[in-house]
């Protein structure tokens, strides 16, 4: 019961942390989606230098730890004088952009080439065919892995604690060290993460179904 009482007692602070965690993740994923689309198209372009650029970016992101990427934005690029929020968001966006690029590339290339041909044969330009025909279908196929990536990003946002942001994880460890009772607060924070992940899963499924009316 003690655990439950502490959960109730601390909820205003945890909710604040949860909101910050959620904001960090949502903004990062939105920027990551733009970055991802951009690099996916570079890769699909089949223009050597652009493909190479895209490969280099993905190699860089995959090959280095996220915490290093976040620290580069916050401590490394001090001349940019970034806020903590900005640094974490950009670090997460830079990181997730690479994975999202691969998700989009795969889903775009999974669309039957006949769709492009049909669009072109009706007089639609390549870009119009992408916008009206290919991307809407690709987006729907990208929904499950995107939801997955969202969940990964949410959990990764806990690294923001290491540059001193009071998101969920930091709230938990602060309570833990003040009371010498880490376990209680780690179990409490686990509940908040689970709730968030559950909500995101529902959201992703809803989005997928909304886009799935066709089949």
């Amino acid at each position: 019961m003690d655990w439950f009482n502490k959960l109730i007692d601390t909820y205003p602070v945890f909710l604040k942390g949860m909101l910050l965690t959620f904001e960090l993740t949502v903004v990062a994923i939105m920027i990551g989606i733009i970055i991802g689309l951009f690099f996916a198209f570079l890769k699909i372009s089949k223009i050597n230098i652009l493909v190479w650029l895209s490969d280099a970016y993905i190699f860089l992101v995959r090959g280095t730890p996220l915490i290093v990427q976040i620290f580069v934005f916050y401590y490394g690029l001090t001349s940019l004088n970034m806020s903590q929020f900005m640094a974490v968001v950009l670090g997460l966006a830079f990181h997730n952009g690479a994975y999202i690029a691969e998700i989009f590339r795969g889903s775009i290339q999974s669309i039957d080439h006949g769709q492009m041909e049909a669009g072109r044969s009706l007089g639609m330009s390549v870009s119009l065919t992408y916008r009206r025909i290919i991307l809407p279908q690709a987006l729907r196929r990208a929904m499950p892995p995107l939801g997955n990536q969202f969940i990964i990003a949410l959990k990764d946002s806990s690294l923001a604690a290491f540059i001193g942001m009071y998101e969920l994880f930091n709230v938990a460890t602060t309570f833990g060290s003040n009371t010498f009772d880490y376990l209680t607060y780690l179990l409490i924070v686990a509940v908040y993460y689970l709730v968030l992940v559950f909500l995101i899963s529902l959201l992703a499924r809803y989005a997928e179904n909304r886009l799935a009316i066709s089949d």
């Binding site: 006949g114 049909a118 044969s121 025909i133 729907r140 886009l211 066709s214």
Partner: peptide
């Protein structure tokens, strides 16, 4: 513009499923 004047029907239809 030219393609718009020349209609094409494919073996596998290629309707837009969405």
């Amino acid at each position: 513009q030219i393609r718009a004047k020349v209609g094409m029907v494919f073996q596998h239809f290629h309707l837009f499923p969405h």
